[in-house]
């Protein structure tokens, strides 16, 4: 199935590359378990494109952050492969006028989920994995000992388990038939709710333990397609000086408040921040809570309507109840 999706991807890019200055997609990485972002600039590179459940990176950040893609050549566009979650990042970037829709050729991929690679690597009994694919409820892993059928649920990334929009919400071409969302809107915030079922003190203890591991490596910020300040990020500027170089819990808390609050009403829950964290801190959970609040209070879900204005960038004088 994924093999044919890759073939369709090749055919699609071959047909459109004449109109595109670069195509952003995924290619094989340093081992069969790791795919890597791939910038296709000439027809020879097309064969290197792949699509499989190990294609975990959200590529949309490359459109707005450096080192990123060069602006399109005169009369051409930039092609980009997006899963459902990535397409919502595109919508958010379009809303904030950080990219323009006219410059993009969006290759939409209905997505049945991506793998939490760390979890797969920790699974005993696998050695020298050659390939990974999804078939219905199974993750089929080919390794040195043959094919293993593993329960998909156990190896999907958390963001994919709670995904409500696996089909790109915006696209020029769709590579596959739309798939059914794994989660309903009611269920999407169950992780938030289960933490909330605990007492205030327990939650403080939970975050103190989790965030204490934070290295402030800023990988979560760097991977976030909507964290676009780059060298003006107030986590690092000396003026204003919000944070110091000191290593203590409050600074880590404050850093995560900065990231989360700057994403309030903007975060599309793509889960990149959590995926890249070397300390396995559930940082997307913090943003999920903020999104639950903006949903309940301001009736807004990020990354769906390119014409909408993110709720904290506007106001409503008639608003009652707050």
């Amino acid at each position: 199935m994924e093999a044919s999706a890759t073939t369709r991807l090749h055919q699609e890019v071959e047909a459109s590359i004449g109109r595109l200055s670069t195509v952003l997609g995924w290619g094989a990485g340093y081992d069969p378990l790791h795919m890597t972002p791939l910038f296709v600039r000439s027809p020879e590179d097309i064969a290197r494109l792949v699509w499989n459940p190990l294609c975990v990176q959200n590529l949309t950040g490359y459109l707005v952050k450096s080192p990123g893609v060069q602006p399109p050549e005169e009369g051409k566009k930039i092609g980009i492969c997006v899963r459902g979650c990535d397409s919502r990042s595109l919508v958010a970037l379009i809303q904030e006028k950080l990219i323009s829709r006219e410059n993009l050729y969006i290759i939409g991929i209905p997505c049945r989920g991506t793998v939490d690679i760390r979890r797969l690597m920790n699974e005993s009994g696998l050695s020298n994995i050659r390939s990974v694919r999804i078939e219905k409820d199974l993750l089929i892993v080919d390794d040195a000992n043959g094919a293993h059928n593993l329960p998909l649920e156990r190896f999907l990334a958390r963001r994919c388990l709670r995904c409500r929009h696996p089909n790109p919400v915006i696209h020029d071409v769709l590579l596959d038939e739309p798939v059914t969302p794994r989660t309903t809107a009611e269920d999407a915030y169950r992780d938030v709710e289960s933490l909330e079922a605990q007492s205030l003190d327990q939650r403080r203890a939970f975050w103190s333990v989790e965030l204490d591991r934070c290295l402030r490596c800023y990988a979560c910020r760097n991977a976030c397609p909507l964290c676009i300040c780059q060298n003006r990020c107030i986590a690092e500027t000396r003026d204003p000086r919000w944070l110091t170089q000191r290593v203590n819990l409050p600074e880590k808390f404050l850093y995560h408040f900065i990231h989360a609050l700057h994403l309030a009403g903007r975060c599309t829950e793509c889960g990149e921040c959590e995926r890249v964290c070397p300390m396995e801190i559930p940082v997307t959970l913090i943003k999920e809570k903020l999104n639950q609040i903006t949903r309940d209070l301001l009736h807004y879900e990020a990354g769906l309507d390119p014409e909408a204005v993110p709720p904290l960038l506007t106001f409503n004088p008639a608003e009652a109840g707050i």
Binding site: V192, L200, A205, S208, F257, K289, I293, L312, E319
Partner: peptide, 16 residues
């Protein structure tokens, strides 16, 4: 008003 209301609802989640 919006920002502060969102913040108010958020603090407890972090244990404040």
């Amino acid at each position: 008003r919006r920002r502060l209301e969102v913040l108010k609802n958020f603090l407890s989640f972090m244990g404040i």
